[in-house]
Design a protein around this nucleic acid. Structure first.
Length: 208
DNA sequence: CGTTCGATGCACT
DNA sequence: GTGCATCGAACGT
């Protein structure tokens, strides 16, 4: 069942936790990919120095100030599209970065997309032999595997192109397996424990 | 194992 | 011109 807009119209940390175990679905030209969300990060308000709303409203961060239940996709390091889900009522800029998925549908498509990106580079570990749990491990990797691009910016999550589903699957999210900690890969605001993940899941990024 | 570093585009100062 | 909410190859130990 598709998650309704009211789900996103809540306190961001609550939405972040509740996204774990739900399924992100993307439909690109009929190529369907999906995966269970196992790791996310919250970026909340202009007072959060790591949130793109920190400088105040700009052309780029406009979706953050808009209504909840829309996608905010941007390019970072000139290479990776990163996908966020806008939360909280319009005027309250906040979003959740999707950092890792456990692949469900469209695994061959994911494998092909991940392998194609390595074209032109010498590589031994890409494409064919990659474990399924690594296909969507990391925010840049999962957008590549799912074919999410800047064209998905501002996508309505209560639509058919990009959305979240609440369905039965075999990924365990027993209480106590949900962990909170500092966000990864940022400089400012790095101490806020606004990263949430399913402890011990192989698709979760940033492990030692 | 560990750390460093290049690729690459664009929003913002 | 600067600085990224990254990734993985290439090195060093």
């Amino acid at each position: 069942m598709k998650v309704p807009r009211a789900f996103y119209d809540r306190a961001t940390l609550d939405v972040a936790r509740d996204l774990l175990g739900k399924v992100l679905v993307h439909n690109r030209r009929g190529a369907l990919t999906s995966g269970v969300i196992v790791e996310v990060e919250a970026y909340i308000g202009e007072s959060d120095p790591a949130c793109h709303a920190a400088p105040g409203p700009t052309r780029r961060n406009e979706p953050l100030y808009g209504p909840p239940g829309y996608a905010y996709v941007y390019l970072n390091y000139g290479i990776h599209a990163l996908v966020n889900i806008v939360t909280e009522p319009a005027g309250s800029p906040a979003a959740i970065l999707i950092r890792a998925l456990d692949p469900l549908d469209g695994v061959p498509t994911m494998r092909r997309r991940r392998g194609r990106a390595m074209k032109g580079r010498r590589s031994r570990s890409s494409g064919g032999g990659m474990p399924t749990s690594e296909l969507c491990r990391g925010p840049g990797n999962l957008t590549m595997a799912m074919g999410i691009t800047l064209e998905d910016n501002r996508a309505d999550l209560v639509g058919d192109r990009l959305f979240v589903e609440d369905v039965e699957h075999d990924v365990a999210i027993a209480p106590g397996r949900v962990s909170w900690g500092p966000r990864i890969g940022i400089r400012l605001g790095a101490k806020r424990p606004w990263r949430v993940w399913i402890a011990g899941h192989p698709a979760v990024s940033g492990r030692s």
